[in-house]
Design a protein around this nucleic acid. Structure first.
Lengths: 223, 223
DNA sequence: GATCGCATCATACCTAGGTATGATCGCGGC
DNA sequence: GCCGCGATCATACCTAGGTATGATGCGATC
């Protein structure tokens, strides 16, 4: 809501991070080695509590998670992470999983669900898919955040006018609806165009759609 | 592409159909009875071939499918149905499934994956979810189809003008780009508005977005 | 209490959009 | 060969959009 993100500063577009959560130190070590061998960064955790208590990088990444963990279930952890604003794609692993568990995980949006032992290549494929999805999510989120940041700079009146204008109303109709003169509406409208960084109504409509902002509902159409 | 669908004629909004595919006649019968008991219509098939060779209703529905079937695998059938334009949500059943199979099915978009024996209530819940998803898909598809039908009535020139106009260009810019006079562009533009059934540029932009039609790419923005 | 941002409106002026009338041209079908 | 449709353009006229200048009022902040 308040983080600008703006024009995506240089930062470090370098490598992605794979967050590994497993109570078995041996598994952690071998996954660590596997991912590092293909140039990925890693973060190792022995329990969900450790992960929740740590400060995570905010770059691209994904989580590789054992379903059966001390304390919380891996499936529950998914919800807790979302509540904390952490939204990495998750790959589940399990030694003693069953079909209902895997189906539940996939329904909840997991990228993959691997039974131990798994082939290294399967894990790498899953991580690749997860990182791709994360990159796409991030791109979409950043674009939307930029638009929202612009929208935040609008005053209440300007937002109101923007809603009506992008709904397709003429200036005089907007003026009538909210009890203003047409000239004032034009001024607000001009401010909206400037603050939203658009030069055409078409682009403003697209940004409004991305934000889900539209006052009146279509009365047009009908063949 | 050519089916209008128009303003959704009355037709029979009545009940949805559940398509059951299983080589076990006993299972077919018990599922048939289960679904009919809650007011759903059913179609029974003993093999994928039977299903592919039959004429299906085009109303709302879903498919309940055994993974292991004579001839084709249930998972392959999914692809074949899509190629035939049949796009019902699928619920898989299996007696001898494993985790990779269930994960593969879920990745391919299945609604659920139930191990036999399953509780009747679990199946009913899955079917309910599947029918809800189908209803939503149908509503979206119908809306998009109506817009596409309007778009089909446009001449080549009108589509070209629409693309540029919804990209945010002024009439004179469009005229310059495609080598016409501004007056001619205005005429085409007026025809587009009429044929697309919209009264405002905002609505035209939204319809163009739904169709993925936009000639030039944004040069606006930048804070 | 002075200042600043926001909102309001008027007058004036210019550009852009929209439509009607009328006309020409080319192509494909009856 | 005639007709209809699409495409093209001109003139004319009206509406809508956009901006600049200038001015007032109100609430919050310093």
């Amino acid at each position: 809501m308040t983080r600008p993100s703006q024009a995506h500063p240089p930062a470090t577009p370098s490598s992605s991070v794979v967050i590994i959560v497993d109570d078995d130190a041996g598994i952690r070590a071998s996954l660590d080695s596997l991912f590092r061998s293909v140039g990925l960064e890693t973060r190792l955790f022995g329990s969900p509590a450790e992960l929740l208590g740590s400060t995570l990088p905010d770059g691209p990444g994904c989580i590789v998670l054992d379903v059966r963990l001390p304390g919380v279930s891996g499936l529950d952890l998914q919800g807790q992470l979302t509540r904390q604003g952490i939204n990495y794609p998750i790959i589940f692993m399990t030694g003693h999983g069953d079909i209902p568990m895997s189906v539940r995980a996939m329904k909840a949006g997991a990228i993959d669900f691997l039974s131990k032992p798994f082939r290294d290549q399967d894990m790498l494929d899953a991580v690749t898919a997860a990182l791709e999805r994360d990159a796409q999510h991030r791109a979409e989120a950043a674009a939307k955040e930029d638009i929202r940041a612009q929208y935040e700079t609008l005053t209440a009146r300007e937002r109101e006018v923007m809603g009506h204008v992008t709904a397709g109303l003429m200036n005089k109709q907007v003026a009538g609806l909210i009890g203003l003169s047409e000239i004032t509406v034009k001024i607000h409208r001009g401010n909206v165009m400037r603050k939203m960084g658009v030069k055409s109504l078409a682009d403003l409509v697209r940004k409004a759609e991305a934000l889900g902002v539209s006052q009146t509902r279509r009365t047009t159409d009908q063949t």
